[in-house]
Design a protein around this nucleic acid. Structure first.
Lengths: 200, 200
DNA sequence: ATCAGATTTAATCATTTGATTAAATCATTT
DNA sequence: AAATGATTTAATCAAATGATTAAATCTGAT
């Protein structure tokens, strides 16, 4: 079962295993023994290095929240790019991250719902967003479109194929490889659709 | 704690409680004792009426899958409505259902991921979808738009405000009531945006 | 080689949790 | 009222689970 690099330090082996098990099964369904087995180590090492399941989870969760939201903010606030460029960057970057981490959105959004505020104290997200170049550009492009509404739609179009993956795989009858292709073709389509929303 | 109607039968009280606890916390995080307490009954009654946690969950899950997907299929296949009408119906119906059941999408999609195929044997969903009037109308309206891609985008725009509710609440700084208003204003917007995607 | 500290292991604990059991209570029929 | 079956309860079980402990092993410095 233990299929983790032998050259990684024990602490890293545990974190690598924890990332995998937590994101696949969620906090509540994860057994510390599963993580230990996946890491190829003894259960006691988990407590030795991370004190408790909860502490280890907090570390992984922080990483994952950062991974899901960290990439978008810099794009939104950048002054030098046009709105269309921002949209293209968001779609491209997100899609690539999510192809590498398909469970990420469902995992993070579910755990955020369960552990209410704990993981969203990322200080001034509200302020940063309001003052972002992205918002101003949307207002300038089409005053009839409410920026947050547009962002919701854009993110919805990007995340939906991952959040609903098992369902859409069945509907489309595609295998893993074909499904990735379908997602990748959205890299070009979604920005076009997003721009056409702004022209509505 | 027990806050369930006294006039409901015990079996119903348990099901009502199970719906609430399962959808709020997910299968793994749900304790049968939580359900019993929420229902205002003794733990043994749960086994008496439903044999096991898993059996009870299967019943609730079946309901919820039906609730999330059941309403859309009839709309997609209906021959008499135009594409625009179908889009408007889907948005309106979904939004109303989800306002009443905000946890529904995250719950169902998470549990489907965890219990792989178990809840998607809903027979010929693939065939029904392929042969639906909806698909044909999209192809006729704009051959450049792949129907499943369009459906993903449409559903993404509808579901995103619910799936990401805690995040968007913080970003927007809105309270529950204001957030619902924001979602309701999408009832008009999303169909317009969807149509503009079809014109791209 | 030896020592000291870091790392790892096997064994065990206490609590939680899903499930069961046997008895008590309630409702309905006669 | 008595009897019968359905419903409900308190108590308990066995397994699962997060965590700890004490001992064994390894590593690097002297």
């Amino acid at each position: 079962m233990a299929k983790i690099d032998k050259d990684a330090s024990t602490e890293d082996k545990i974190k690598i295993a924890a990332r995998k098990v937590f994101t696949q099964k969620g906090y509540a369904a994860t057994r510390t023994r599963d993580i230990a087995q996946e890491a190829g180590i003894n259960l006691a090492l988990l407590s030795y290095y991370f004190r408790s399941k909860e502490k280890l989870f907090a570390i992984i969760m922080r990483e994952k929240v950062q991974k899901l939201f960290g990439s978008i903010v810099p794009i939104l606030v950048r002054q030098e790019t046009t709105l269309q460029e921002k949209i293209e960057h968001i779609v491209a970057e997100y899609t690539e991250i999510l192809i590498e981490n398909p469970d990420l959105p469902l995992f993070v959004l579910s755990e955020i719902r369960n552990h209410p505020t704990q993981f969203l104290e990322m200080a001034p997200i509200q302020k940063v967003f309001r003052q972002s170049s992205f918002i101003h550009q949307i207002k300038a492009t089409n005053p009839a479109v409410v920026p947050i509404q547009f962002l919701m739609s854009l993110l919805g179009m990007i995340l939906m194929p991952f959040v609903g993956m098992p369902v859409f795989k069945i509907i489309t009858g595609k295998n893993d490889k074909q499904y990735i292709k379908l997602i990748e073709s959205r890299k070009k389509q979604v920005p076009i659709w997003a721009m056409s929303i702004l022209s509505s």
